[in-house]
Amino acid sequence: MKAAAFDYVRASSVDEICRLLADAGDEERKIIAGGQTLVPLMAMRMARPDMLIDINDVAELAGINDHGDHVSFGAGTRQRAIERSDIVSDRLPLVAKAVRNVGHQQTRNRGTIGGSIVHGDPSAELPMAALALEATMILRAVSGETEMPIDGFFEAAMVTNIEPEQLLTEIRIPVWQDARIGTGFHETSSRQGDFAIVAAAAQVALAEDGKVTRAAISVGGAAPSPVKLHGLEAALIGKSADGFQDIIALVDEEIDAETDVHATAEYRRRVTRKLVSRAIDDAIAEAGK
């Protein structure tokens, strides 16, 4: 399990990275940040880049900042930093709940939010949370900067809509300004710390009367990519804690579960409903406090 040979460049700026990506020609050049997804793929020779561009020294790619209406994450921000961030726990409680389910201390110390998103694992927790909250991704290339909504970014299992010459530099996750907000995150995995078999993330805002005024819901493991449940979100508006079970079946319409060695498609479908329901329950309860 040794990677195929590659050239290695330790980049010092975003501009340098973009130039290296632009000059790739026929070569496959890949970004390495934490390496927690990429290196195993390379060890199994399922990925074999000609060049690795190491972005770990690029200071502008790390950091969590509160901008009032959103929190920005440098793409190279470690999962461990997110776990420990007061900004995240205060402003993005859904992200805080999600990151607690990510891997183990050794992997969180290296793994980054950007790496997690660009690899597009169907059941990774941070992409799910970012998707639920409609994050915006900032992509840079020599030709300039592009803003891209995260919804639509995930194309298939381990495939995302990033061009070879693009670098994900930043993820902006909106902070809801509503008065009464609650979140819920539930997942089931074979072992604690594994990628989820199925996971569900929900954030709601409530009116004074306890009715949902705004909902953000996503699931992982229920389709080849993380899925935002637009239909259920819309249907949840106006519902209260004990009034949404009749619409939970809407989940089925937006997911596309598959069978693998860990679970059957039927299992994923049924459990997705249950976990979405639990996540909404938690979110409404928390918002009502």
Partner: peptide, 8 residues
Amino acid sequence: IRARDIEA
């Protein structure tokens, strides 16, 4: 005995 067997 895995979760999926019990759930099913």
